[in-house]
């Protein structure tokens, strides 16, 4: 990845235009031609640096409800508890973390009752010792693009 690649990758994360020829604008800002910008970005995608091109939708604006939950799981049981949790389509992220609460997962669904039922099911049947539900009371910041030019 050279400097132009880094700039391109920063630009397409930040302000990808909703216009007929988005790469024209991107290329101009990076000082390359449209076809060079496309070739470089396609190469970064093939390398796996770019996971996806598309939209991130705002679940709340679309009426979805989500939460973060933390489970305290005995060290030897993390895999089996994770298998139980991960079967739900509504669970999108799940991480093992180094804390007494060691399994952290997000639940997202069309309404509150579904989220509550999933948390309840996991509490009763997954094998976790304890599950705490931590729905956001305030969102201060969500930034998912990174400046790679620094």
């Amino acid at each position: 990845m050279d400097e132009i690649d880094r700039l391109l990758l920063t630009l397409i994360q930040r302000e990808f235009p909703l216009s007929e020829r988005p790469y024209v604008e991107i290329a101009e800002k990076a000082g390359v031609t449209e076809s060079e910008a496309i070739a470089r970005i396609e190469a970064m995608r093939e390398e796996g640096l770019i996971r996806r091109m598309g939209a991130s939708l705002n679940p709340r604006a679309l009426g979805y409800v989500s939460t973060l939950a933390a489970a305290r799981v005995a060290p030897g049981r993390v895999d089996s508890v994770a298998n139980y949790i991960n079967r739900f389509n509504e669970i999108t992220h799940n991480y093992e973390r180094d804390d007494e609460f060691n399994v952290w997962f997000t639940v997202i669904a069309r309404d509150e009752a579904v989220v509550a039922a999933i948390i309840d099911d996991i509490r009763k049947h997954s094998g976790a010792d304890e599950v705490i539900d931590l729905p956001a009371t305030h969102i201060f910041k969500i930034k998912v693009n990174f400046d790679l030019t620094k």
Partner: peptide, 16 residues
């Protein structure tokens, strides 16, 4: 209107 939170590339941070 905020239904689209962001348009563009999603990267693999570790690789980048």
């Amino acid at each position: 209107s905020g239904i689209i939170r962001r348009m563009g590339a999603f990267i693999r941070h570790r690789k980048a």
